[in-house]
Nucleic acid binder design. Structure first.
Lengths: 191, 191
DNA sequence: TAGCCAGGTCAACACCTGTTGACCTACGGT
DNA sequence: ACCGTAGGTCAACAGGTGTTGACCTGGCTA
C-alpha cells in the first residue's frame, strides 16, 4: 500500500491532468470545460480523470488550488506598499492560470466562489492586519479585492480594449494610488 | 401581416419569457440557465421560447439588452461628478437584473463579453468625452469599468462579506474618489 | 355558421454530459 | 516462470440539453 517517496509512474499523468484542467477551466469556465476535453488534452482516457480525482468538483478544487504568496510588506515605506501590492497582483495573475480559472468559475460555481472569498479573507486580510488597524483589515481587503478583481476581469477575461492596451507601468500608475487609499485612507465613522 | 399597435395577446407571454430569462441568466449564468427552466418559470412550453426568440443565444441577446441611461453630468461641478456617477451605477445595478445577467454570462460567453465591451465603449465613453480630453475618454472609461465591474462582482455576484456589508454611503465614500481620479487624474506622458 | 390562424401543447430527435464497471497489459518481486 | 497489481482502455449507462415538427384549440372575421 505505501511506497517510498520516489516518484510513482502515475505522478506524471496526474500532473498532466492537472495542467490540462487548469488550462481548460481558465479558458472555458467550470461548466464548459468538459472532462472529456481535459482528458483529451492530457492524452488520456476520461475514466482516468475519475480514478485520480473522484469527480469534476474535486478535480476543479485541485486545479484551482491557489496561493497568493503574499510577501511581507511591513518593512516597506508606507507610501510604496500600494505600488508593491499592485505589482505583486499583476505578477501573480500573469504567471499562473489558476487565478483566471478561479475567477471564471467563481461567477457561476458556488464552490469556486467560496474559495475566492477565502482567498481574500485568509491570505490578503492577514497581511493587511500588519499595515492598518486590524479591525478594519477585512473591509480594506474587500475594497482591494474590488479593484484587483475588477482590473483582472476587464484586462484578462473581458479584454476591454482600453484596459488590455495599458502597459504595466501605466496600469501600476493608475491602480497603485487606489490600492494605497483602500489600505490607508481614513474611514468616516459617521457613515 | 401587420396589425395596429394595440396589444397582441402574445405580448404578455413574450414579456413573461423575457422576465424569466433575465432572472435565470442573472442567477445562473449562460450555460446553467436552461431553456426548460426559463419556460417553466414563465409557465409555458419550451417550444414557445424557440418560436418567439429563435434560439438560446438570441433569447439571451434579448434578455441582456441594457441601457446604462447615462445622465448628462456636464452641468455638475467637477468635484461632484465622481459621486454622482458612482451613485448612478449602484442605482442601475440594483434595479435591473440585466446587468447581473450580462456580467455572469460575459465571463464564459463571447457574445455577452462583446456586449459588455460595447456597453462601456458605446455608452460610458461618450459621456466621458464631455468631461475630459476626448482622446483620453476611452482609457478613462476602461478604468472606470475596472472599478465599477469589480465592485459589482464582489458585492452582487461573489458576495464577499466585507463588500456586501458596506452601506450605500460607505460604498460611495470609498468609490467616488477612485472614479473621480479615473475621470480627471492626469496621465503621465512618459509612460 | 364556417373557416382561418395566432397561440399553444406534446412527444420526440440527436447530441453531449459526468460517471461507472468490466476488462486488458506490462512489470517488479518471489 | 509466475502472478499480483498499478496503470490504463473501452463501451456503455442514465440523465439532461437545445431544438424540431406534427398536432391541437379557441376566438375572430368573412
Amino acid at each position: 500500500m505505501s511506497q517510498s517517496p520516489g516518484e510513482r509512474r502515475s505522478d506524471r499523468t496526474r500532473a498532466g491532468i492537472l495542467a490540462a484542467a487548469r488550462e481548460r477551466f481558465a479558458a472555458d469556465g467550470y461548466e464548459r470545460a468538459t472532462i472529456r476535453a481535459i482528458a483529451a488534452d492530457a492524452a488520456i482516457d476520461p475514466a482516468m480523470v475519475m480514478r485520480y480525482f473522484g469527480n469534476k468538483e474535486k478535480l476543479f478544487a485541485a486545479a484551482a488550488e491557489f496561493d497568493l504568496r503574499m510577501p511581507d510588506f511591513s518593512a516597506l515605506p508606507r507610501e510604496e506598499v500600494g505600488a508593491a501590492l499592485t505589482n505583486h497582483f499583476l505578477d501573480r495573475w500573469e504567471d499562473d492560470e489558476s487565478l483566471k480559472a478561479l475567477l471564471r468559475a467563481s461567477v457561476t460555481n458556488e464552490v469556486a466562489a467560496e474559495r475566492m472569498r477565502q482567498l481574500f479573507a485568509g491570505q490578503l486580510a492577514p497581511v493587511i492586519k500588519n499595515l492598518a488597524d486590524p479591525a478594519e483589515a477585512a473591509t480594506r481587503a474587500g475594497l482591494v479585492a474590488t479593484q484587483a478583481l475588477g482590473f483582472a476581469l476587464c484586462r484578462y477575461v473581458l479584454a476591454l480594449p482600453p484596459v488590455a492596451a495599458l502597459t504595466r507601468p501605466q496600469a501600476v500608475a493608475w491602480l497603485a494610488p487606489t490600492i494605497t487609499r483602500y489600505l490607508t485612507g481614513t474611514i468616516d465613522p459617521a457613515l
